[in-house]
Design a protein around this nucleic acid. Sequence first.
DNA 1: TTGAAAGCGCTACCAA
DNA 2: TTGGTAGCGCTTTCAA
Lengths: 342, 342
Amino acid sequence: MRKKVTSIEVARRAGVSQSTVSRVFSSGSLNVSSRARQQVLKAAQELGYQPNAIARMMSTRQTHIVGILMATITSPFYPYVLEKFLRELQAIDRQVLLFTASDNQSIDDLLPLALQYQVDALIITSATLSSEAAAASLRSGTPVILFNRATNEPNVSAVCADNLAGGRLAADVLLDSGHQRPGFVAGLQDTSTSQDRERGFIVRLRERGCTRVQRAQGHYTYESGYAAATDLLERAEPPDALFCANDIMALGAIDAIRAHGLRVGQDISVIGFDDIPMAAWGAYQLTTISQEVDTMIQRTIALMLDRIEKPDAPARIEHVSGRLILRTSVRGLTPTVNENGR
Amino acid sequence: MRKKVTSIEVARRAGVSQSTVSRVFSSGSLNVSSRARQQVLKAAQELGYQPNAIARMMSTRQTHIVGILMATITSPFYPYVLEKFLRELQAIDRQVLLFTASDNQSIDDLLPLALQYQVDALIITSATLSSEAAAASLRSGTPVILFNRATNEPNVSAVCADNLAGGRLAADVLLDSGHQRPGFVAGLQDTSTSQDRERGFIVRLRERGCTRVQRAQGHYTYESGYAAATDLLERAEPPDALFCANDIMALGAIDAIRAHGLRVGQDISVIGFDDIPMAAWGAYQLTTISQEVDTMIQRTIALMLDRIEKPDAPARIEHVSGRLILRTSVRGLTPTVNENGR
DNA sequence: TTGAAAGCGCTACCAA
DNA sequence: TTGGTAGCGCTTTCAA
């Protein structure tokens, strides 16, 4: 049992050359007589032979492995992203080597590691790339695609939601439904997602004459949303509506609001961003702006395949716009869209 | 940029042999004069050399890659499991090749694929292994460990929560707090987790004289928990307490109960299993039985390392018992434990 | 359609 | 401490 069976042993047993065995298991059995193929298959079956993928990578110099670097797997949005990536990549016969990093620092440490594995491409989610890291990836000739983060690096492609437009949409929604004092709960300070959502929101509010916006800092977790909302509610003139940079903070905000004895969607409105499944749960019914994960992922993979094929093609940034998902957490708006979490 | 730099080029530039370059990058620079090492490092730096991990695997016949096969990444319990596994494995210098499967069928298809990658070991979560698959893994000499599933296969190790004890605990909790008509919401029919939790629950209830237990079938999702609870509530003599086979169904049940105008923890009690972060959220405050993920994962990795070292050691099954996490969804019990989601 | 043989980029052994 | 060299298990020419 211990010993791995190699193509040589199969060849011996089948009475053919090792080359023939290789042909049977690679090029779709091209240029192999069906008699030889039968024999090889039979011998392989009997010996329990499986081709050694590592050796194959070695000679073809193609691993068919995609590296995924994910900073925050547990934030409820990302498991969907990961699962979808896996399915799509498995479907096109690519395997996934997964890395996780706690902060942007470790991304820089992990990148060379991923490159050592000769991945065909690297997808980085929920993290930013330093310029040095970008340079290293460029030098190695490994395409890098950012998912859900913008970047200024030339030569690094990215796919993200249209966060600016999303922020503007949130502003319009709140103003249209008659709110006067909107507040903003920010996500992690140094993320392009939070920055852009905030900027779109503020700019649009200003365009429509609303200049005083209260703000509290969160960091994309339930607890930080709870804390930020509490902070905002206890100020002298609390907001009458909250735009939270992601759904999970919005859920925390809702619970904080209720803990203050206020009713969400009546006394105060809340709007989120992402449309995670929990946003549709009975206890929350969160109105939010969706991230079109499926589309974003398809684009990411398309971009990736493109760069694997034409490594010298210029990098591209793509934006995917979200939709307003109407539920009951913003007052004066009635759900019309079809309701299913995801 | 395109071309990958090899150790030969580094050797040439550093004026040493290729063997020396190899030594510098492998055996911790053992048996290399510090002068030679300096030169090699300098040359490598200048050329942007990174050792090729695939080639290394090829000669050492050790990939240092662990395969993880995960059926349901998006069920809220699993992202934590995955992240924890990644951190722990990265910490001991092992990489993770991740596979996902939609059902037990595809597990069987994925297993040979994972084996082709010569993974040092395979961890399978939230899925069961057919006997043929177990045999295949055995023949290949690759250790397989099940996480969170029991198994009867000899030669397959497993780590899971003590589900039987958990079910008994749930029964005791409900009876001790004066409930008369407990009901059970089952998870996926064919999972050992749901079966064992149910069995422990029923057996203990019976031991204490409670024989009539109503039951509804769910499948480990929020929606199915909602539906199952609705079903139970609308029966002639609805239960006064619900034990749900996992937390996410319990949350669905809570929302269903509220939709019926009943108060959770007063009119009817709910107890879950897992202790996912959402169970601690303000809107739910779910009393539940924890799965000690960290411990379970450490055990899994220990088991794995053990079998990698001694492939002929017998398989082992380990159980990790959970704790009662008191919140407010079961009436008559007051939270005492320290409160933080995870 | 087949087989022989030359790599792929490393590690590890052996001799110096 | 060094360098030379023989693999690791495949794929892929090249000739036959």
